[in-house]
Design a protein around this nucleic acid. Structure first.
Length: 466
RNA sequence: CGGGGCGUGGCGCAGCCUGGUAGCGCGACGGUUUUGGGUACCGUAGGUCGUAGGUUCGAAUCCUAUCGCCCCGACCA
């Protein structure tokens, strides 16, 4: 939607891309009044009801326009923060040859979760669940010197894990969209800095997405590794049980200046955010947890939205990814990998931000910046005022969603609340008589009456600040 | 993969036990209503009842097989 533009700059939507506004009468937004019976958790129900996704088969979804827009917004933020941290975007394929996986030894280890396919020549292929093998193959083919390091490559691509039992909509699908990145470093110390740098960059990414994601010590699982943290969003429907010191939820990364090449600075941030007790059930230790003051001990559930690993030379040894160092010795590179579940984040954000009427999008990821509700479609003054608002917002680079359907006010409000745009401008003949429209916050429900010009200025101001 | 359940118009459901070729609500469409939080009324269209066999004069309904989907558990990001 922004032409795939990847820029580390922030500073508001104006620089990011031209607004793409929409009239609801011309959009494709198939909202449902009733909840489809297959959906159990709130994010899945709301995504179906708000016309964001349609299930294609178990754990596989089509992304309808509204859902697609949110997915792309999240992707864009992830890209921006990756590039800001000095990581380099690329794209690897979804289908991979089994040969590389035999080389790493994971073809047999991965088990039934790997979707295996045979092509017409009888070659064994697979739909990639992750990309360590591919990236290592690329690295060893093209990188031979320590002078080329450090290097961190990443991509955002669809992956597939053939879950026995997909559920919770996009939160645990079989096909999922994920950012995965891989760092290559000469030494363990350098690789650990890459680890720290990723942790910092993830903190910033999740905050921009409107989430509080807590880094927690985790089990390395089948990827294998020495060091790993998972980022968890607290939500009742989370799949993981988590234990933490409540002091950690007071920490905010904010908009602090950070030099991603500064080893000490990155380490300090990591230490700040991992000093408190925060672990998933996999690594939870009651005796250590007991040292946390009792009134700060929390036991909750969380949704995993990201994970970072340092795994040393596991793949470089197995696959011969080496460089020549200053002493002309051939040494295996130290690697790590890092993932953010982009499609899963759509569900996670809704789990963390909704009410009984629908979704409440954080400003950073909302599919449209604000809604315009025309209370009396066909009324010359109301129509004209809405058209002017629509044009004025668009001119400022904002994307309004204008409900210009010939519906009753109640229906329009209900749709807006369900879809969850953070701001709504309500326009009706009654207000226009005294020259005002109403600006309403979806989150707080509070309304203010303003002139149309002031409402536009206020919304522009809000988005310029994020 | 173990246990349970469900497939009937776009969505939510009834009908199945006690066979007689399909019904309700929402939505859609056309009207009337001009309505400031899913208004009311009138009307219209839309379904080979997941699929394939079988039993029967006759199957959404009974039997068999098969496919799909959901829930609990184990597993997993």
């Amino acid at each position: 939607m922004c032409g795939g533009g990847i820029s580390p700059k922030r500073g508001g939507v104006r620089q990011r891309c031209k607004g793409v506004p929409m009239r609801l009468s011309r959009y494709f937004l198939p909202v449902l009044k009733e909840t489809p019976s297959e959906a159990q958790i709130v994010s899945h129900r709301l995504m179906l009801r708000a016309g964001m996704i349609k299930q294609a088969s178990a754990g596989i979804y089509s992304w309808l326009p509204l859902g697609f827009k949110v997915l792309k917004r999240i992707e864009q933020i992830v890209h921006e923060e990756q590039v800001r941290a000095g990581h380099i975007p690329m794209l690897m394929p979804t289908l991979q040859s089994a040969d590389l996986w035999r080389e790493s030894g994971r073809y047999d280890d991965y088990g039934e979760e790997m979707l295996r396919i045979t092509d017409r020549h009888g070659r064994d292929m697979l739909y990639g669940p992750t990309n360590e093998e591919l990236i290592t193959d690329i690295f060893r083919a093209h990188v031979g010197s320590y002078k080329d390091l450090p290097l961190t490559l990443y991509h955002i691509q669809w992956k597939f894990r053939d879950e026995v039992r997909p559920r919770f909509g996009v939160m645990r699908g079989r096909e999922f969209y994920m950012k995965d990145g891989y760092n290559f470093d000469l030494t363990k110390d350098a690789a650990l800095h890459a680890y720290n740098r990723h942790l910092v960059s993830y903190l910033r990414t999740f905050e921009r997405l409107g989430l509080q994601a807590i880094p927690m010590r985790a089990d390395s699982g089948p990827i294998g590794g020495d060091d790993t943290h998972e980022f968890l969003v607290l939500a009742e429907t989370g799949e993981s049980e988590v234990f933490y010191d409540s002091a950690i939820t007071d920490l905010k990364f904010g908009n602090r200046a950070i030099d991603y090449d500064d080893v000490d600075q990155c380490r300090a941030v990591l230490e700040e955010f991992t000093a408190r007790y925060a672990r998933t059930d996999e690594t939870h230790d009651e005796s250590v947890f007991a040292e946390v003051p009792e009134d700060r001990r929390r036991r909750a559930r969380g949704i995993e939205v990201g994970q970072i690993f340092y795994f040393g030379t596991k793949y470089s040894d197995a696959m011969g990814a080496t460089v020549v160092n200053e002493k002309q010795e051939r040494v295996p590179v130290h690697m790590g990998s890092h993932g953010i579940g982009v499609s899963r984040l759509v569900g996670a954000i809704i789990e963390a931000s909704h009410d009984d009427r629908g979704i409440i999008w954080p400003e950073g990821v909302t599919p449209f910046h604000c809604g315009i509700v025309n209370l009396k479609q066909g009324d010359a003054e109301a129509d004209a005022a809405c058209d002017q608002l629509y044009a004025a917002l668009t001119a400022r680079g904002l994307e309004p969603l204008y409900d210009d359907r010939n519906e009753r006010a109640g229906g329009k409000f209900a749709t807006m609340d369900l879809v969850g745009l953070p701001w709504r401008i309500t326009v009706g003949p009654r207000g226009l008589k005294s020259g005002v429209v109403e600006l309403t916050s979806r989150r707080s429900g509070e309304s203010v009456e303003l002139t149309p010009e002031a409402a536009v200025a206020r919304i522009a101001e809000i988005y310029a600040a994020i």
